[in-house]
C-alpha cells in the first residue's frame, strides 16, 4: 500500500518555486462500490496526508473518497535549502504510508 512516486526537479534555485508532484497508489475505496459478486466494498480511503520539507510541515490535506483513486497532488514549494521532502499519509484502515525525496537547492 505504501507505493508512491514523488517528482521534483533534479535541482532548484534558492528562492524559486519548485514544482512537486506526488502520486500515491491507493484504491480510495468509496464504500459504495460492489464487486462482481455484489458484495459491498468497505470504505478505505486516505484520510490525511502531510508533507514536510526539511522537517517543517508545509502542507496538510484532509481527504475523503471524493478524491480520485491513486490520488495525485501538484504544488509549488519555495526552495530554501537542500533537504528531504517527506510525505506521510494514513487511510481508513489505519495503514500508514510514507515516501521521501531529496530536494537539492543551489
Amino acid at each position: 500500500m505504501a507505493l508512491a512516486r514523488i517528482q521534483v526537479p533534479p535541482q532548484a534555485k534558492r528562492g524559486e518555486p519548485v514544482e512537486v508532484r506526488i502520486v500515491i497508489q491507493h484504491p480510495m475505496e468509496t464504500g459504495f462500490r460492489r464487486d462482481a459478486n455484489g458484495v459491498r466494498q468497505r470504505r478505505n480511503a486516505i484520510v490525511a496526508l502531510v508533507c514536510r520539507y526539511g522537517g517543517v510541515e508545509v502542507l496538510r490535506a484532509i481527504t475523503s473518497p471524493g478524491v480520485a483513486a491513486n490520488p495525485t497532488l501538484r504544488f509549488h514549494l519555495r526552495a530554501e535549502k537542500t533537504g528531504d521532502l517527506e510525505f506521510w499519509w494514513i487511510d481508513d484502515d489505519n495503514v500508514e504510508g510514507s515516501a521521501k525525496a531529496q530536494l537539492v537547492v543551489v
Binding site: 497532488l73 509549488h76 514549494l77
Partner: peptide
C-alpha cells in the same frame, strides 16, 4: 471532499489534484 492546509512555505497559492 478535501481540505488543504498550507502557508507561506508554498511559493504559489495553487495546487492540482483529481
Amino acid at each position: 471532499m478535501a481540505s488543504f492546509y498550507f502557508g507561506p512555505h508554498l511559493a504559489r497559492a495553487e495546487f492540482t489534484s483529481r
